[in-house]
Design a protein around this nucleic acid. Sequence first.
DNA 1: ATCGAATGAGACACTGATGTCTCATAGGGT
DNA 2: ACCCTATGAGACATCAGTGTCTCATTCGAT
Lengths: 192, 192
Amino acid sequence: MSHRVYDRLMSVDRTQVLRAAAALLTRKATATMDEVARAAGIGRATLHRHFAGRDALVRALEELGLQELEAALDTAAIDEGPEDDAVRRLVAAVEPVGPLLSFLVTENQLFEGDQQNEGWARIDARISALFRRGQENGVFRIDLTPAWLTEALYGLVGAGAWAVQDGRVAAKDFQYMIVELLLGGARRSVEK
Amino acid sequence: MSHRVYDRLMSVDRTQVLRAAAALLTRKATATMDEVARAAGIGRATLHRHFAGRDALVRALEELGLQELEAALDTAAIDEGPEDDAVRRLVAAVEPVGPLLSFLVTENQLFEGDQQNEGWARIDARISALFRRGQENGVFRIDLTPAWLTEALYGLVGAGAWAVQDGRVAAKDFQYMIVELLLGGARRSVEK
DNA sequence: ATCGAATGAGACACTGATGTCTCATAGGGT
DNA sequence: ACCCTATGAGACATCAGTGTCTCATTCGAT
């Protein structure tokens, strides 16, 4: 009958389409629905059957990004262990979501005026909590607010994803570059 | 006769229009020419008289941004003195250009395929040179490439400008937050 | 007061993207 | 072998943004 097998009747994998869309829109935010469809290897009509319109597509993309970010936060287990190690795990887990994250961060300013998506608020809160915990435990400096450190993390991940995509930074260095700068800064520490 | 006074006959100040356009486009990258015109307080026809089209507008915006960045690099005198102080001066000087910079950085990925604008290459080179000089003088760590530090600077300035605009960070803390994170990182140093 | 240049508002045609529809076809499920 | 559904391709109307033009008006210069 129409159990889960039935769902798979659709030869078009929604998530796969979203990934293709993300990959394209990350590079070219103004890409056409037709371009998105071709990038996903499907027809424009089919794309419209799955996503009512461009807005719906972006919303779905946002949903996907939020899901993956939440998942990354979970697998990184940022509530456990030393906070600097938690940040390392977080960056590592967030790396694959990098491009999508940077797209959504820049795209989100379009929805200004609306209340900030609650999904984002939740993720912000979780990451901020990590930095706050680190401050309380004396691992992180207290003169940089958790909110700013969270924003900075987004910014660095975005810059990193973009730099990798443009070939200015090797993909294998992505995690190291971000974590080291975020945690240790650029200044050479007297004792390493 | 038609000396400099004659130029001022135009009641529309080109730079002023560009600033208004930058302010709007930074928040809403997809803003219409009509919206830009209204934001600048002029008619759409007049906007078209000054900038042939949307492309021309963006190009002019890019030119303005490059000019201001070069000027910021000059006033910061990044070739002189201790490198960490130079970075402080650089961030301070670049702050007013923050929104425009972040707009151009994200907008630039549209012109991918084309050769990177030589103006950008020049600015990248100047900033990279600062970080490289700091590395050679033992001020900056050598495991983070100058190219990455430059990208990170862009990313942090963008994130900072955005955070300020959204009220998540106080404007007066902009410079401090960025410089401290960029130079010192989030980790609490044993000796301050 | 007069002249000239620039402006604002609106009309207009044009283009590109969008969203909807139809129809033939391929490909799984039975 | 037979359905039945999803798909791809294309046609189509619609819409929003663009770029151009005209014309009345404003404003500074003389």
